[in-house]
């Protein structure tokens, strides 16, 4: 597989959120605005790339039986780094994402890539795979966040689009809107890719 293919597959064909339906908790829980979506996406991207690199480096030293716990420790290490860095430098984002930062550790995308890709491929490919998946995840979260923000409040990235005369459909910022918006986005993706859902 060429490097470009590895990079691009996470973006469209195997998009973790829209196609593979992984990492749904942060995708729904943190996308109250496009900015939070980007923040969560980038935090996950960092963990994905770093854990893929380390898992790929140590894959030959870890006995098969204890590989999953070992991967979890590696991932948890990088999640702790992200947690401390966000807390120190972007306290607003840290507050908005809240519980979902430590929960990156149980994000199925991260463990899934470590197990499915990094444990079988070389370091460079694993890093590219992590980057591609991370970009796909960030894209999905940003899109979902933007859709919810535009419908919910008529503004995106702090720019008022003047869609509504008053407040907008608040329900899209609240919990139910997350499910409904993501449901429709996945339906549109299915329709465009003409792929029958399983």
């Amino acid at each position: 597989m060429s490097k470009l293919k590895i990079l691009s597959k996470g973006f469209i064909k195997e998009n973790p959120v829209f196609v593979m339906l992984l990492g749904m908790c942060p995708a729904l829980g943190t996308t109250t605005s496009a900015e939070n979506g980007i923040g969560m996406g980038l935090a996950t991207l960092f963990v994905l790339v770093m854990s893929n690199i380390v898992v790929s480096l140590v894959k030959n030293f870890i006995p098969d039986k204890v590989r999953i716990p070992s991967y979890i420790v590696i991932i948890a290490t990088f999640v702790t780094i992200v947690d401390l860095v966000l807390h120190a430098y972007v306290p607003d984002l840290y507050k908005a994402l809240g519980l979902f930062i430590p929960l990156i550790v149980v994000n199925c995308v991260v463990l899934g890539r470590a197990e499915a890709f990094a444990s079988k491929n070389n370091v460079l490919d694993s890093a590219i795979d992590g980057l591609g998946m991370g970009i796909g995840f960030t894209f999905a979260l940003t899109l979902l966040g933007a859709v919810r923000e535009i419908i919910g409040s008529g503004r995106v990235f702090g720019v008022n689009l003047h869609l509504y005369q008053s407040d907008g459909m608040l329900v899209f910022i609240l919990a139910p809107g997350a499910f409904i918006a993501l449901g429709f986005i996945i339906a549109i993706v299915n329709k465009l890719s003409k792929k029958p859902a399983q």
Partner: peptide
């Protein structure tokens, strides 16, 4: 519709349940 089957419909139903 074919493209609503599975996850999309499940998510929308979950949204209504959340509502």
């Amino acid at each position: 519709p074919e493209y609503m089957k599975g996850a999309p419909l499940a998510l929308i139903v979950a949204g209504i349940l959340a509502l």
